[in-house]
Simulated assay, not measured.
Amino acid sequence: MIYKVLLVEDNENLGYMLKEYLAMKNFHIDWVTSGSSAKIFLKSNKPNLIILDVGLPDIDGFQLAQWIKTECPSVPFLFLTARVLKIDVLKGFNLGAEDYIKKPIDEEELVMRMMAILNRTSKEPVIPTSNLNIGLYHFNKNTRVLSSPNAERRLTAMESKLLVMLSQKLNQVVERSLLLNEIWGNDDYFSRKSMDVFISRLRKYLAEDQNIKLLNIHNTGFILNVETGTV
C-alpha cells in the first residue's frame, strides 16, 4: 500500500529533502509550505498522515493542529519541529499529535515512526461483533460512531481502539503497559503522555452517563466502570 502523506514544512531545503527521501520509501508526498496552503489542500484531500512543522510563516503548527482536529478528525498527525521545550512537547500531545519528533532527525527513524503511526491508526480492532452498548451509549465499531440519546461523535481510530480494549474488560483493571504496547507500540514517556490525553477525551465523551466512570488506578492501569448497561 502506498500511503499518502501531507508534509507541512516551510524550510525549502528540508522540505525538498524529506519529499525526495520519503518518495523513495514509497510514500506519496504532497508538500506545502504554509498553514493556509495546508488548509486548502485538506479541504479536498484526505491523506493517511500529516507531518507538521510548528514554525510556519502564517499560522503556527499548533493552531493548524487545532483546525485539523476540527475539520479532519480522522487524519492522524505528528509534529516534526525544532521546538524542543517540554511545554511545547506536552502541548503537541494535548492537541492530539500521534508523535512529537525533534529536529534534526535521522530519516530512517522518521520512516519507522511514521509506519508505527500508520500501522496503529489504519487498522480497526479485531473484535467479533460490530456494536457495543456502554451504559447510555451505543458504539458502532465499523463506523467508529459513539452515540447517546442526545448526541453522536465519530471517534478517531486510536480512540476507538482504546475504548474497545477498555470495554472488553469492563469493570476490570486494564494494565497501562498493555494499552501502550497494543495501541501505541511502545511504553516510553511520550506515549504515556499521549495516552493520558486520549483517556481524558474518552472521559469527556462518556460524561453524559453518570453511571460510567473511567478510573485511573495509580501506577497500574485503568478501569472502565459501568454500574448499569452491558457491553
Rank of each mutant, 00 (worst) to 15 (best):
I50M: 07
A116Y: 10
P128T: 14
D88Y: 10
K204P: 00
N150S: 15
I117G: 05
K103D: 03
F190S: 09
I105K: 09
K213L: 13
L179N: 01
L136K: 09
M114A: 05
V32F: 09
Q66R: 15
L214W: 04
G92D: 08
F77L: 11
Y16C: 10
V231G: 13
A82H: 04
N131P: 08
K46A: 11
N45G: 05
V226L: 13
V174M: 01
R201P: 03
F79G: 03
G55F: 06
T228P: 01
D196G: 11
I134Q: 01
T230M: 09
S37Q: 14
D188H: 07
K4R: 15
T143L: 04
T70A: 11
R176W: 06
K141E: 14
Q172D: 10
I223T: 03
P128S: 15
L179P: 00
E107N: 14
D88R: 09
A97P: 08
L162W: 03
R201H: 08
G92C: 11
H218P: 00
L202R: 05
K25A: 07
M114G: 03
G96M: 05
M17R: 12
N211M: 12
M115T: 12
L224C: 02
K69Q: 14
I29P: 07
T121R: 01
W67C: 07
R203P: 04
K204V: 02
N171Y: 11
L18E: 07
K161Y: 05
L179G: 00
L180W: 00
G35I: 08
N48W: 01
D196N: 11
